[in-house]
């Protein structure tokens, strides 16, 4: 009995829900740190970060843990919700649930489903483009005194590759790499311009405003989900004790309100001020 207890029992499902949820909170902190470069850093800093996040082996391992956590958290949540619905086949004619529990705590499944929809569209908009789509490479304007400014490609190897050199056929671009024309002699690697994609996404004349509003609303949903979820994870793992409660409450405030608010500020800043 004890052997299957950590997989199948009601409490085990809560442990897994809590562990995956807390890991995803950590992921949010890392993700936010990168995103804030859209406000505080320049395009180069953001694109360098994006390249690091898609190529670094340690990050790759973490990213797979993140994908698995999202899937497991969602599937576990669905299983729990179905079981919980089954536990009360006939509902109440009148249920004054607001008298004894918070809105968030009663609607975690709905909030979570909305977040899953957001995550899928968000990944289609940015993650999938970064990983699989043909992306523009980052160009930088270089000014030399007394001369016309020149557009060059920014490269990992810190080489200056003038844009017109490529246009005139002196160099060939395959994916993100620059080659001597007609050969497989690689000259340099360019940077996928995720910064440009992101800024254009939120500044798009037709859809930019809708995208910005949808993103902000998604962060409101995230705030509600985390306002219950973060503290709840500790309770599920058995950490609920007057000794730690203050600390968990403080952290919960930061995770549930400060982090989604900072995420939400970024598209608003891009749409209106960039």
């Amino acid at each position: 009995m004890a052997k299957s207890a950590l997989l199948k029992s009601s409490l085990a499902k809560k442990y897994w829900m809590a562990l995956t949820g807390l890991f995803l909170c950590l992921f949010l902190v890392g993700h936010l740190a990168g995103n804030l470069q859209l406000i505080f850093g320049d395009a180069s800093a953001f694109n360098e970060y994006a390249l690091f996040m898609t190529t670094n082996p340690a990050v790759k391992v973490l990213s797979y843990v993140t994908y698995i956590s999202i899937l497991f958290h969602a599937i576990d949540g669905i299983v729990l919700t179905i079981q919980n619905k089954k536990a009360r086949p006939i509902g109440y004619a009148k249920n004054n649930a607001a008298a004894n529990s918070s809105f968030s705590s009663r609607n975690m499944a709905i909030l979570g489903t909305l977040l899953l929809v957001f995550i899928v569209t968000h990944m289609a908009n940015f993650w999938a483009k970064m990983h699989f789509a043909e992306m523009p490479l980052q160009k930088v304007e270089v000014k030399v005194e007394g001369q016309e400014p020149v557009l060059i490609y920014k490269t990992v190897q810190q080489q200056a590759i003038p844009v017109n050199a490529v246009e005139m056929g002196q160099l060939e671009v395959k994916g993100t790499q620059f080659f001597q024309p007609g050969t497989d002699l690689k000259v340099a690697d360019g940077y996928k311009d995720l910064h440009k994609i992101t800024v254009e996404f939120f500044k798009n004349e037709k859809t930019g405003l809708i995208a910005t509003i949808a993103y902000v609303l998604a962060m409101v949903v995230l705030g509600f989900h985390l306002s219950h979820g973060f503290g709840s994870a500790f309770q599920s793992l058995g950490v609920n004790n007057p000794k730690y409660r203050g600390c968990i409450k403080g952290l919960s405030f930061i995770i549930a309100y400060v982090i989604p608010a900072l995420f939400a500020i970024i598209p608003v800043y891009i749409h209106f001020f960039k």
Binding site: K14, Y15, R106, S232, Q235, G238, V239, N240
Partner: peptide, 30 residues
């Protein structure tokens, strides 16, 4: 059903049994 930590039980319990007990059970079970 499974607990989702809404805390409604603690509020409605006529004897004021605390949620800390659920956390203790979770620890004991683990």
């Amino acid at each position: 059903g499974n607990c989702t930590n809404t805390g409604a039980c603690e509020v409605e319990c006529p004897k004021g049994i605390s949620l800390e007990n659920i956390a203790r059970m979770n620890r004991e079970y683990l």
